[in-house]
Amino acid sequence: MSAHDLFTLGNRHFRIGVGVTAAILIVTAITGFIVLPFAQPWVQFANVWDAICSAAGVPQRAANVTAPEQSKRLSEVVLTSRTLSRPSQEAIGRGATLAQRCAICHGPTGISRADSPNLAGQYAAVIYKELHDFRSGARTNAVMSPFAVNLTDPEIADLSNYYAYLPRLPAYHPTPQLPKPNIVIYGAPMRGIAPCGACHGSLDNKTGSPWLEGQSEAYMKAQLQAFASGERRNDISQQMRNIARAMTPQEIEAAAAYYASQPSDVVKAVD
């Protein structure tokens, strides 16, 4: 028998091979697409076709379920690893002029003594995102929001570039440097908490995450609590809310106290 006769019904191996394969396929398909869907007492199907579509995974939109209304604004800022990565000297100069009005809280050198964040040397993308969020209302603060509302896009970019350009001066942190708490270096894997340092700099830096060394303890604690309660919600994909919710009050205290005690010049350069 030559190879030409292989694909004919006269060939026993062809009949058996194709027949058995087809039979197995048909039996498993009937079981998987018809018998098993109907065997689930908690699901009702209108007809056989309905069951087959369900088992095949046909994409369906439930007709009478609408997406929950978003009552509060969410952040609409898009950041990439190249956002504001190459500022011009002019942009920094314009930012310096604009920054006069920020100095009352954030300090003339970008170092605050009023429990506001230190901005000197903060990543440009971070300031850029927060200013946009304050302007759009995705993040609100009684003091900050009125300042941000009237900023234009170029002004936000200039301010971000200016503060990123300033040297990181040692911040005001009267406590001695504390040892690293577990939450900072290990996170809590069993509760789905990544180490703080995985995004905030000491291990790795992720776009849009600020460095935290030497920031005000009260400020960081308040922000973690705001994330945990859902009062602050401008984190993309709920990253910080999920983490803060799972943190214990002691861990929030420990993380805030630790970062506040660190000198900001340990922050690693990213550019």
């Binding site: 197995i24 396929l25 498993t28 398909a29 998987g32 098993l36 869907p37 369900s54 088992a55 995974g57």
Partner: peptide
């Protein structure tokens, strides 16, 4: 979630083979 349960069953049966 993006794969239908029916296909999962068929693949499971063939895996047994």
């Amino acid at each position: 979630p993006q794969v239908g349960a029916g296909f999962k069953f068929v693949h499971s049966a063939f895996t047994a083979l």
